[in-house]
Write a protein that binds this DNA or RNA. Sequence first.
DNA 1: CTAAATACCTGATGGC
DNA 2: TGCCATCAGGTATTTA
Length: 270
Amino acid sequence: MPELPEVETTRRGIEPFLHNKQIKSVQVHNSSLRWPVPNTITRLADARVQHVSRRGKYIVLTNKLGSAIIHLGMSGSLRIDKQTIPKRKHDHVELLLANKHVVRFHDPRRFGCFLWHEGPVEEHPLLAKLGPEPLANQFTGEYLFTATRKRNVPIKTLIMNSQVVVGVGNIYASEALFMSGIRPGKAAKRLSRREADALCKQIRDVLQKSIEKGGTTLRDFINSDGEPGYFAQSLFVYGREGEPCQTCKTPIKKTVMAQRSTFYCSACQS
DNA sequence: CTAAATACCTGATGGC
DNA sequence: TGCCATCAGGTATTTA
């Protein structure tokens, strides 16, 4: 599921149920996620949740003892259920709340994680080396231009590198490059300053607009209210191989880059 | 240092 | 209907 807009949509969905709330208990049904869920995760229930935050695609739940670091991987979701609703297959972790609700972490492929860290969460190894947030002021055309210098990787691969900028996943990488008129396979170091400016702006715009619309739905994304999102219909190139470009009618091409499907218009993008 | 390959896992889909 | 191959929104880690 998760591109950054879905993660932010999820964060906003669970925040009202967790902010300043006391979790009654943490129940781990299957600890074999990408890394084992530690036994210390129960400390999440030992003090009120002070913050429900996000860094890149990581959702962070913080109390005075430490932080839960949650990632949804490829197929994960967090949702709010009534405790009377039976948990489903692949509901690996549950946070039982006082008000008869439960937060359920669901992840069929188990590429996600649910870790516990004590001390400043930004110092956790998974977070320490992350690049800027795409919607933060530090993410500028100048920054992106500098980051592309001497880099021979395809620009699509570069913008998906979380050490350069966080939160740009496979869907929105293709979309932002289309909106910028830049071919995904172009070597990063060949970008002009003007192209870097445009790409920065389009990354910000596509993510911001998607967050506003509540996230893209593909396959099994369920937002925290249990309702699917509804943004897939406004993608321009992703998943549209062979369909006419909405700008020039040229059929959209599909290629593979760093083992990921990549879509672009050979006429509009250079 | 960079870049590419590999690893983790289940489920949906399409061809035969 | 069943079986098999292929693909899927992520990213840390290993290898070159």
